[in-house]
Amino acid sequence: MADSIIELKNVSTVYEGERVPAIRDIDLTLESGEFVAIIGPNGAGKTTLLETINGLLPHTRGQVRVLGQDVARFGPQLRSQIGYVPQEFQFDETTPVLVRDVVLMGRYGRIGLFRRPTAEDYVRVQEALELLGLAELAERPLGKLSGGQQQKVLLARALAKEPKILLLDEPFSHLDFVAREEVAELIARWHRERSLTVLIVLHDLEAIPRSCHRVVLLNGGRILHDGARERVVRAFTLAHKE
């Protein structure tokens, strides 16, 4: 039997100052090496779910365990092993950081306190930059890049971490069609070759990668369907027609 790598039991998350949970009564288990898509309409709680899993948002009820450990207690240590590409990002032109530094920063949690990045850290950064076709932009200021390039930088940052889990929140939203295909293929390859567990949030059903066989449908903060891709996508499409 495969190991549970992400385990949520009866989890609810309420934002500060709010009374209604953004996600509620979530039971979700991911086995090691699974590739799962989360779909749902705007405001369904998809981003909240991802950020509850990596502990950026503290959950208010239930239990979240990642890699066998409690996220509430071991958040920073766990996050150093989880790659995350957020949906929302905005870097103005004067942001004082270069592309190479942004990607390297993804590894800071692994490197730990009082330690400097080593030659190996820089090798991983260079690999990630090359994988995403960003090597020539390494010394450019992040704020000078287009939205699509910035999204690729954040993806490179997540991959440079050599994560065990990859959480992707609308990772294609700023990419053109060709770049989207390339990035989807790259994610699929990493999933396949490195037994990476991937959880990807999408609202465009066409964008669900081919290697993703399990889909979770979220609405109103609750899981409505969780199962085989075709069945859940059909349920979502029918619900939208009604």
Binding site: N54, P76, P86, T95, M105
Partner: peptide, 23 residues
């Protein structure tokens, strides 16, 4: 000097710093 990388992450983007495992 001691905490340059933690400060760099914090000054870049606090949420992304937390995401990379920097408290």
């Amino acid at each position: 000097w001691l905490f340059f990388k933690e400060f760099q992450a914090l000054l870049f983007d606090r949420k992304l710093a937390e995401e990379s495992g920097v408290p």
